[in-house]
């Protein structure tokens, strides 16, 4: 029995034929990749979530564009096309901010503890959730684009791609926003706070009603919000003119503040967590 046991233990520390030490780095990368892909697949079969970030923006877009979309803008820009970018930004915003509450809910349910009983590291878990958010951004934006194409928006391939890429990039700080909310709020409230923040950003950032139609105070507020600039930067390939560098500055400031607040929240979470 003892001989068998000792043999068994050495087997596990050093599986025959695969020196553990050499296999570890690539093994760790393989496990991370597996987890990220599986998380994305699981997220993509969550119909309620997909309805929230894909069906709702697409429906609102189809509704509004059928009401106003045929009017050409003064500068000859198709209103339906700009509205499409705005609604795509709205859908992307929901997808981006969701990563935090995903992490939060898996932590509070206890599933995270189960994951920590595997060879996956905590940092890999968080990174995979961020990748999942980015992966969901693309269908969230893409579906509104498809609806736009169906409504008769005609752009060349380069413009479609540039707009998609710019919206995704401009929404990356909003992933951090979701993480920050998850770090600072209790699990029961984090999801609600995330939704409220998302709706406030969408409304005040002119994603539902154009900022130009709002009172001046609201316009000033809106121009300080990342949601407004994400849609402006995303629309730039369509409307042309000067690149909205002012928006880049606003986004960078938001990102810096969010990272700072997030770092404080992380230290606080480490200090107060029992495990």
């Amino acid at each position: 029995m003892t001989t068998l046991t000792t043999h068994r233990t050495s087997d596990i520390a050093q599986p025959p034929g695969t020196p553990t030490r050499d296999a570890r780095p690539s093994g760790s990368a393989r496990r991370f990749f597996h987890y990220a892909v599986q998380s994305i697949l699981i997220q993509l079969r969550d119909w309620a979530f997909l309805g929230f970030v894909i069906v709702m923006p697409t429906t609102i877009y189809l509704f509004f564009s059928s009401m106003y979309g045929d009017e050409g803008g003064g500068s000859g820009i198709n209103v339906a096309a700009v509205m499409m970018v705005t609604m795509a930004t709205y859908g992307g915003l929901g997808a981006a901010m969701n990563a935090g509450s995903q992490i939060q809910s898996e932590r509070s349910s206890g599933w995270f503890r189960q994951l920590m009983l595997t060879s996956l590291a905590p940092g890999q878990f968080v990174l995979a959730k961020i990748l999942t958010a980015i992966a969901v951004l693309i269908p969230a934006i893409g579906t509104v684009f498809l609806a736009g194409a169906a409504r008769g928006v005609r752009l060349d391939a380069g413009t479609w791609a540039a707009s998609l890429g710019l919206i995704v990039t401009a929404l990356l700080p909003m992933i951090v926003f979701g993480l920050v909310i998850a770090l600072w709020f209790k699990p029961q409230t984090a999801t609600a706070v995330t939704t409220l923040a998302m709706l406030a950003l969408a409304m005040l950032g002119g994603l539902w009603v154009p900022l130009q139609l709002m009172p001046e105070v609201m316009q000033t507020i809106g121009k300080l919000l990342p949601s407004y600039w994400a849609s402006q930067i995303g629309a730039w390939p369509l409307v042309g003119g000067d690149f909205p560098w002012q928006g880049v500055i606003v986004l960078v400031v938001w990102l810096a503040v969010l990272v700072g607040v997030g770092a404080l929240g992380y230290r606080r979470a480490i200090r107060t967590s029992r495990r």
Binding site: I12, P15, T18, T20, A23, R24, G27, R30, R31, H34, Y35, Q38, S39, I42, L115, T118, S119, L120
Partner: peptide, 9 residues
């Protein structure tokens, strides 16, 4: 399937 990919051996 999700969990199976997360173990070393």
């Amino acid at each position: 399937t999700l969990m199976h990919g997360l173990y070393a051996h």
